[in-house]
Amino acid sequence: MDLSFLALLLCPLMFIIMFFIMKGMHSNKSHSEHPTDTADLQKNMSKLMEQNEKLSKEIESMKRYR
Rank of each mutant, 00 (worst) to 15 (best):
M18T: 13
S61L: 10
P35H: 02
Q51M: 09
S32C: 03
M1Y: 10
L55S: 03
E60S: 05
M22L: 03
S30A: 14
M25K: 14
K57A: 13
S27I: 13
E53Y: 12
L55R: 06
S46T: 15
L3R: 00
T36G: 10
L41H: 08
L10A: 12
M22H: 03
A7R: 05
N52Q: 04
R64V: 13
M18I: 14
E53N: 11
L10W: 09
E58Q: 08
F19D: 07
L9T: 04
K23C: 07
D2P: 02
A39E: 08
F19H: 13
F20G: 01
I59T: 06
M62A: 09
D2A: 01
F20R: 04
Y65C: 05
H34K: 15
N44V: 04
M62F: 06
E50D: 10
L3P: 00
Q51T: 07
R66Y: 12
D40W: 10
K54D: 04
A39S: 07
D2Q: 00
I21F: 08
L3Q: 01
N28T: 11
L6H: 06
K57T: 10
S46N: 14
L9V: 03
F19R: 13
M22V: 07
K43Q: 06
S56Q: 05
N28K: 15
L3M: 09
R66I: 15
L6Q: 09
E58W: 03
L8M: 15
D37K: 05
N52C: 06
Q42C: 02
A39M: 08
F15T: 07
L55V: 02
M62P: 01
H31F: 15
S30M: 02
Q51H: 05
M25H: 09
H31Q: 14
I59N: 04
E60W: 03
I59H: 06
D37Y: 04
